[in-house]
Computed example of a mutant assay.
Amino acid sequence: MPSFADVAALALELPGTEEGVRYGHRTWQVGGKVYAWERPFSKADIKRFGSTAPPSGPVLAVSVADLGEKEAVLAAGDDAFFTIPHFDGYAAVLVELDRVGTDALREALEEAWACVAPAEAVAAHLRTHRASGGGGASA
């Protein structure tokens, strides 16, 4: 079960990533564009869960390419990935860290990074990962 320290370590492996703080919560960004952030639930979020208990552990938000990609991620069946009404119409998904595997987290961060990173950085990262036999973000 990854922690935010693990998120930071994985994110900071991605070229040009910087860690920051927005609204009192950690963010990970490249070129000034945030692609992942700590996402605690607001009182309004919790109220919208109604009688269903919200996840009690840490939650990360990650960008996705577009709403079609968001639907694909959610339809893939990994119950660590979910959304809430606040994210309706927004190209991002939430990740319950207590339920996600490290490989799935790494892939989600790489995909989110690739959504906002400069195209040349993404291409260089893909070349490096392919040469080393690693996976990698799609362009």
Rank of each mutant, 00 (worst) to 15 (best):
M1W: 00
M1G: 10
P2G: 04
F4A: 02
A5L: 02
D6A: 09
D6F: 02
A8F: 01
A8L: 01
A8P: 02
A8S: 14
A9N: 02
L10P: 03
A11T: 08
E13F: 11
L14I: 11
P15T: 09
G16H: 01
T17I: 03
T17K: 05
T17Q: 02
T17R: 06
E18V: 14
G20S: 03
V21K: 07
R22T: 09
Y23P: 00
H25E: 07
R26F: 00
G32R: 06
V34F: 01
E38W: 08
R39D: 03
K43T: 12
A44Y: 05
A44R: 14
D45C: 08
D45T: 09
K47H: 02
K47I: 02
R48C: 00
F49L: 08
G50F: 07
S51E: 08
T52G: 00
A53M: 13
A53Q: 12
A53I: 11
P54N: 00
P54M: 00
G57R: 11
G57I: 12
G57P: 06
P58I: 05
V59A: 04
A61T: 12
V62R: 10
V62H: 05
S63Q: 10
S63Y: 00
V64W: 05
A65S: 13
D66Q: 11
E69R: 15
K70D: 01
K70M: 11
K70E: 01
K70C: 05
E71M: 12
A72S: 12
V73S: 05
L74V: 09
D78H: 13
D79G: 01
F82G: 04
F82T: 07
T83D: 05
T83H: 07
P85Q: 07
F87L: 15
A92S: 12
V93W: 12
V93G: 10
V93T: 13
V95M: 06
D98L: 14
R99M: 12
D103Y: 06
A104I: 09
E110M: 13
W113M: 08
A114K: 13
C115A: 07
C115P: 05
V116C: 04
E120Y: 11
A121C: 04
V122G: 03
A124G: 08
A124R: 15
T128F: 08
R130S: 09
S132E: 14
S132A: 15
G133S: 11
G135Y: 06
G135L: 08
G136P: 04
G136R: 06
A137N: 06
A139K: 10
